[in-house]
Amino acid sequence: MPHLPVLKTYKLFVNGGFPRTESGRSMPIEDARGRLVAHLCRASRKDLRDAVEAAHAALRKWSQATAYNRGQILYRMAEMLEGRADEFVDAIRCTGARPTGRSRLAPRAEVEAAVERLVSFAGWADKHQQVLGCRNPVAGPYHVFSLPEPTGVVAVIAPDDPPLLALVSLVAAPLCAGNTVVALASERNPVPAAVLGEVMATSDLPAGAVNILTGLRAELLEHVAGHREIRAVSAAGVDKAQQRTLELGAAENLKRVHVRGAQPSDSWLDERETAPETIAPFVETKTIWHPSAG
């Protein structure tokens, strides 16, 4: 008797669990030949709010975890991703919507790069403070130092391609510094992001520290921009109109907005993607003064 394949229904990853969208909506994902591969949730504004609430609640625990501990958890994520490498290769391949041309990444290479990216940011967790912070030689009897502190809840808007590596890069940078994240996956190929949620769920990450939504960018962008608990936005593959939407909404509570335009898929392999400049937009410099003489 032939086996009838079980089509997996991917759900959202919010607060450490896998809820369906409260809206009940889903999006079909098809492969290159138009065959149905899976159904994914089409997240709503309410789902976004729930995710932000979870991220906000997780902030204290994650930001106050030791830097060493955060580094270990990011490394654990790399281990879990490596262990499911084949599944991620399939997830990247599963749609026919990937761009063609010289800049496209081979799925296997993309997965390997994503593993390496997590390892790299695992290392940054207890090092960026020394690169981005300093002691200030003020003209007076004071001990004064400036430290990078997490900004808070960071919203990540991932580009369409590369669906795994870009998302992992955009999430890992703020995460390693102690921020919590609400990420909106690639719209064209959200399957790797949905699988990534399963990696996160098994990496000792506190519930809510990373939340992953799948859905339509056009539908959610404005709500991300206007949400008052979101303190910073990291968005890639953004066109001018989307940039304006984000920055206009951000002006209401003075969110920090870091946007990138379209970029070739292979540029995500660049070593600059692990530079401290990728973390810098998602930390606040706090300067502390204390008298140093009686």
């Binding site: 900004t151 910073a232 066109d239 001018k240 940039q243 920055e247 951000a250 969110k255 920090r256 907005v257 870091h258 946007v259 990138r260 335009g261 379209a262 970029q263 070739p264 540029s267 600059r272 400049e277 810098a280 937009p281 998602f282 930390v283 606040e284 410099t285």
Partner: peptide
């Protein structure tokens, strides 16, 4: 417009 500029743009925040 840097809208289609492939490089990184850090404009706000830090």
């Amino acid at each position: 417009s840097p809208g289609n500029n492939p490089s990184k743009r850090s404009r706000r925040g830090r």
